[in-house]
Design a protein around this nucleic acid. Sequence first.
DNA 1: AGTGAAATTTATCTAAC
DNA 2: GTTAGATAAATTTCACT
Lengths: 155, 155
Amino acid sequence: MVELDRADIALLRAMQKNNRLTSEELAGVVHLSPTACQRRLRRLRSEGVIEGDVSIVSPKAVGRHVTMIVMVSLERERADIVDRFKAAIRNTREVMMGFYVTGDADFMLVVTARDMEDYEQFTRRFFYENHDIKGFKTMVVMDRLKASFAIPIEA
Amino acid sequence: MVELDRADIALLRAMQKNNRLTSEELAGVVHLSPTACQRRLRRLRSEGVIEGDVSIVSPKAVGRHVTMIVMVSLERERADIVDRFKAAIRNTREVMMGFYVTGDADFMLVVTARDMEDYEQFTRRFFYENHDIKGFKTMVVMDRLKASFAIPIEA
DNA sequence: AGTGAAATTTATCTAAC
DNA sequence: GTTAGATAAATTTCACT
């Protein structure tokens, strides 16, 4: 774990909300010079504290009108089966997020689809044709309250 | 829904991966001039197709070593109770994501914590002291496979 | 070490077409 | 939609604490 001082934390907090701020704007927030802000950001990126910088696209605006939470159980929790399913997740664009978990299910997926029919087709392709899968349970997302990757950062 | 042509889609795809590309780099990707790329991005932002631009911070790098998926059931699914819980989600930094869902549970949360003890304390504060909550089920995340907001964007 | 100021390089914005 | 010039920002250099 990397050492982070107050300025780093202030920078990360700001950049998690909006990474298009100029270094001058950032300087105002963290009370350092623009140059210092840029240097710190470069360091944070090279050290992997900042993993990436992305635009957040509205699913609805690009025609993905439904989002599902899917809990998936595998037939057996054998390493090769788990790895195969992980690969399937990575290669499937409809799966926006995938978590390998302990507990009632083996995987939690967030899946987007154009509509319900589209989701139906997806389940046929992705679940029913996969013999490693014991079962899955779908929950329809009615409201996305937080879908940011904002992580609480403390001093 | 906004009309998007091939260039818009190419722009969105690129910006979902990396929004720090210069307009010249983008121009190379979408085969337009840098100015055209900037104009399109400005439009996509003003129309809300691009909801925001953020840095992705590594949870581990900032000391959040554990991630949990929590399925929450409310005592009653009454509008005011649901709204109150939505507000609680929004105001709670540990909750990285929150979805209001249909099905077995009422909410699905992604929660980060420094460690298990920290998560314990969180559950006490957030769940046990809240009388609107019937129950919750925690799944420990062993592997984050996809935790991006990359949405499949099609022509 | 890490900081800040000024000069340089680079990118973005504002036209004009 | 493009190209070119003006504006603004990021980067580098360097002196300082």
